[in-house]
Design a protein around this nucleic acid. Structure first.
Lengths: 212, 212
DNA sequence: TCATAGCTGTACCATAGAGTACGAATTTGC
DNA sequence: GCAAATTCGTACTCTATGGTACAGCTATGA
């Protein structure tokens, strides 16, 4: 009796949903590539096919559409990032793996574009930065912090603030992103691997307890 | 006989210079606040007083003016950052001081705005990111690396790549900037001090040699 | 004093943008 | 099959933009 086998949504609402998704996807592509001001609603209508009337019936303004796109971008980020931390007991290995996967995700073109969009527009649209942080970054921080807390408890990490540690490691990972934003430094496998090793290595040296 | 007491530049050229500066300053303010697309040449003329003819006689297009602004922004950054590293022999103290000053500089509203502008526009204007990195960030990296190299030589830091170390420390500092971009986290003295301590502390733990 | 380089103001052009209006065509639920 | 909800296409308004043209004004330099 759940809503998957007996959809309460009618054909109409279904196609409305699809339509909405299509709009958001197209808008997402354009906003990521051209920024807010560089995205034209008229052009969007042309890309999508259909009429302005229709577009405006789904989103009453450009800003509203933009908000929906930001929402979409952060939620897709969130979905992918929540699975980066395995339940492994090997601290060193887990951290390296985490850095690797996280950096790989950040290296993707759309991630770079999203980062640029958020950074560029959060001055004029304060919501954008806040949403991005709250719904994408912060979640990763807390998840990582919980992961680290286990190793503090087990004595493998120093007894210091886990959230702070998480922040520092993520900060390191994000710093690679800056060079990508600036068009410096490539997103190739080799440099990524080197960075993953450097970041997790630095972290462990700073926060791992000496053994024995 | 130097050119300060006997200016070779005529009154005309002097006032041209002033005019140009005024234009760049006004443009800078607008680009930083409104971004590239959000800056209007017509509005700029209005702010400056004078006529379009004049503005276009100094800069033949909006892009050319934008380039001049980026140039100005990076060069003013560079000028300030080159003096952050004292010749002190106390490693720990120097690093903490460096982080403090660097973070203070980054916390300034115009630095945040500049960071946003560069991040936001370097997708559409690849030059912008490259120039910003080459002329502002890279210089800081190499200066810091040279500074660190002295302590590697003296045995206070591990024998590892000084440029890499510099990159990591600056990366940490830059990570604070992200939160500012997103409008999360304030630029107040207290949090800055805490971050400076955390960054330099983490760095030292990771790269300082254990004593005796 | 005078020629002139440079400035001003204003009108103008072509293009583009967001958003509205509306009648006709199409799809949906029943 | 029919009424209602959507969608379509197109034309429209209003505002703004980067950039040009031009006639008159002003400070400069000799």
């Amino acid at each position: 009796m759940n809503d998957t086998d007996k959809p309460t949504i009618s054909r109409r609402e279904q196609s409305k949903q699809n339509r909405r998704d299509a709009i958001v996807q197209a808008a997402r592509a354009s906003f990521l590539e051209n920024g807010y001001a560089g995205t034209s609603m008229s052009a969007l209508v042309h890309t999508l096919g259909g009429s302005k009337q229709t577009l405006w019936s789904y989103f009453r303004s450009k800003e509203e559409l933009f908000a929906a796109v930001i929402e979409e971008v952060t939620s897709s980020f969130r979905a992918e990032l929540s699975q980066l931390l395995t339940g492994s007991d090997d601290l060193q290995r887990s951290l390296l793996d985490f850095c690797r996967s996280f950096l790989r995700r950040l290296d993707a073109d759309d991630a770079v574009a999203a980062w640029r969009l958020v950074a560029g527009e959060s001055g004029r649209f304060p919501e954008v930065g806040r949403i991005f942080y709250e719904r994408a970054v912060r979640l990763t921080e807390t998840t990582l912090a919980q992961f680290l807390a286990r190793f503090i408890a087990s004595g493998e990490l120093r007894e210091e603030s886990a959230p702070r540690m998480a922040e520092l490691l993520l900060g390191l990972c994000a710093s690679r992103q800056n060079k990508r934003l600036w068009g410096v430094g490539t997103g190739d496998e080799a440099s990524r691997e080197a960075d993953a090793i450097a970041y997790s290595g630095m972290f462990l040296r700073a926060f791992a307890r000496e053994k024995g």
